[in-house]
Amino acid sequence: MLRCWKCSDDHLEEARCSGDSDASSQFHFPHKAFWVSLPASLLLVIIALGLTGHLGPLEPPSQSSQIVRITAPDLDGLLINQSVVVDRQNDLVTYSLMSPENKTSTVLFDIKHGLICYKPVDQDSCFLEQMGQSDYDNVHALLQEQQQSHFHLCGNETQRQTEFRGVLAATQVELSTHVQDLCRDRPVHWTKRAEGPGKQRLVYFCIDICFPSNVCVSVCFYYLPE
């Protein structure tokens, strides 16, 4: 026989309890309520931590940008030093080309939008063109490279080619955000691939770009007739 006590408003009253009595049920109820409410409480805690950032991002963090250096001898045997920033998250490859006067020109490959933007150091404009298949092929090695941070191209193994771009008259240019960031306060001109300027046209400047695929391209610009 189990003897227990229950409390009334005025005095303690003795009650006779059995295994299936109401008092026994009341004794086990708090434990049942605890286990029922525990998952809900944990869920609320997880949501709160997620909102405050303590659990970190729900998706894995993207890889940071990688800096790659490319060195190659020019036609005179002097080394060309180029640094490349590879941003895989935004599909961007940005070349920084150092001149002998320690001035830097920039070439941006905006792969997502299929654009190449040239920002020469000695010009007050930017020059834009659509990427061709050869451009995609040349930057593919940089996007796929995960570990190597320095490419040294040998002169006797490097293919060299010259390409010409004709600068078009002023046109309405719709720019991507990355091109806008690169060419702040500069007018942007469309260009198109051309066979060459001919004797009557003057080549204004050239930019040399070397790729890990042992290809160096000299891109030269001239203005088309208005």
Score class of each variant (00 low, 15 high):
residue 21 S to R: 02
residue 41 S to T: 10
residue 211 F to C: 07
residue 162 T to H: 06
residue 75 L to I: 06
residue 69 R to E: 04
residue 174 E to F: 14
residue 153 L to G: 00
residue 41 S to C: 15
residue 217 V to M: 06
residue 10 D to L: 13
residue 138 N to F: 03
residue 202 L to C: 05
residue 53 G to L: 14
residue 120 P to A: 08
residue 94 T to V: 15
residue 14 E to A: 10
residue 80 I to L: 04
residue 155 G to Q: 00
residue 145 E to W: 14
residue 132 G to S: 13
residue 20 D to E: 08
residue 152 H to P: 00
residue 103 K to S: 15
residue 82 Q to D: 11
residue 134 S to K: 08
residue 83 S to A: 00
residue 176 S to E: 00
residue 155 G to E: 03
residue 205 F to L: 03
residue 198 G to F: 07
residue 87 D to H: 14
residue 186 R to A: 05
residue 1 M to K: 14
residue 128 L to P: 01
residue 184 R to T: 15
residue 133 Q to G: 08
residue 11 H to T: 06
residue 174 E to D: 14
residue 219 V to K: 09
residue 165 R to E: 01
residue 99 S to R: 05
residue 78 L to Y: 13
residue 180 Q to Y: 07
residue 13 E to C: 11
residue 135 D to V: 10
residue 87 D to L: 12
residue 10 D to C: 02
residue 81 N to F: 14
residue 163 E to D: 11
residue 77 G to D: 04
residue 3 R to F: 13
residue 132 G to Q: 08
residue 18 S to H: 08
residue 188 V to C: 08
residue 170 A to M: 11
residue 108 L to C: 03
residue 55 L to S: 10
residue 170 A to T: 13
residue 132 G to T: 08
residue 134 S to W: 05
residue 5 W to A: 13
residue 77 G to F: 10
residue 9 D to T: 10
residue 220 C to R: 07
residue 195 E to W: 09
residue 176 S to T: 02
residue 171 T to M: 15
residue 46 I to H: 12
residue 182 L to H: 01
residue 11 H to R: 08
residue 32 K to M: 13
residue 95 Y to E: 09
residue 76 D to F: 11
residue 63 Q to I: 09
residue 94 T to L: 15
residue 61 P to F: 07
residue 211 F to R: 04
residue 118 Y to R: 02
residue 145 E to V: 10
residue 51 L to D: 13
residue 57 P to V: 04
residue 104 T to L: 12
residue 86 V to I: 10
residue 79 L to K: 09
residue 84 V to W: 01
residue 20 D to H: 12
residue 95 Y to G: 07
residue 175 L to Q: 06
residue 16 R to S: 06
residue 216 C to Y: 02
residue 202 L to A: 07
residue 78 L to K: 14
residue 170 A to S: 12
residue 170 A to Y: 10
residue 108 L to K: 12
residue 71 T to C: 00
residue 42 L to I: 05
residue 55 L to F: 12
residue 205 F to P: 00
residue 11 H to W: 05
residue 135 D to L: 14
residue 219 V to G: 01
residue 146 Q to P: 04
residue 55 L to V: 07
residue 196 G to I: 03
residue 19 G to L: 13
residue 142 L to C: 12
residue 165 R to I: 03
residue 213 S to K: 02
residue 202 L to R: 09
residue 55 L to H: 09
residue 192 K to R: 15
residue 153 L to P: 05
residue 118 Y to E: 10
residue 28 H to I: 12
residue 126 C to T: 00
